[in-house]
């Protein structure tokens, strides 16, 4: 995890790249998350001041969009596509099996293995369904019985 000075520095740098207009709030949040991996409370509070909104309003925005995280992410991330094509080709069973292997439900992280699990509505790679993305790498036509191997392969790799 990054140190607090580091957060302040980064946030300042991002403020410098954006005018204090409300419409840049979401872009600001994107950039913070891109740099730090999540949106720390500090950044949230300061952005409220910078964009002349109440902290509650900023919190409302952050929690409304599923793309923003309020907690640090893990070294590894597995994303399960829940699109319609993936669903009819077994994404539900894949979600359950991955939850079982990692002992977490989507939205949580297994800190021992340093893997976070989450679902996404649709990645638009429907012809390759079902799709699972591990650390940004797309796995096409995933089969239930391959999941263990996929998890093992990636949890050994460091990013």
């Amino acid at each position: 995890m990054k140190q607090i000075e580091n957060i302040q520095e980064e946030v300042d740098r991002i403020f410098n790249s954006l005018p204090p207009e409300r419409r840049y709030l979401i872009l600001f949040l994107h950039r913070v998350q891109q740099k730090l991996g999540y949106i720390p409370e500090e950044a949230l509070l300061r952005s409220a001041e910078y964009f002349s909104a109440s902290p509650a309003e900023v919190y409302g925005v952050v929690t409304f969009y599923s793309g923003f995280r309020l907690r640090p992410s893990c070294q590894h991330e597995i994303v399960i596509c829940q699109g319609t094509a993936c669903h009819v080709r077994g994404a539900q069973a894949i979600k359950e099996e991955l939850s079982r292997i990692l002992e977490i439900t989507p939205g949580e992280a297994n800190s021992g293995k340093n893997i976070a699990l989450r679902t996404v509505n649709c990645l638009g790679c429907c012809a390759l369904a079902p799709v699972v993305v591990v650390d940004g790498e797309y796995q096409a036509r995933v089969n239930l019985k391959d999941l263990k191997k996929i998890v093992e392969k990636f949890s050994k790799k460091s990013r």
Partner: peptide
């Protein structure tokens, strides 16, 4: 360009 943040 404006980037969404994950909301249908």
């Amino acid at each position: 360009l404006v980037r969404g943040a994950g909301a249908f």
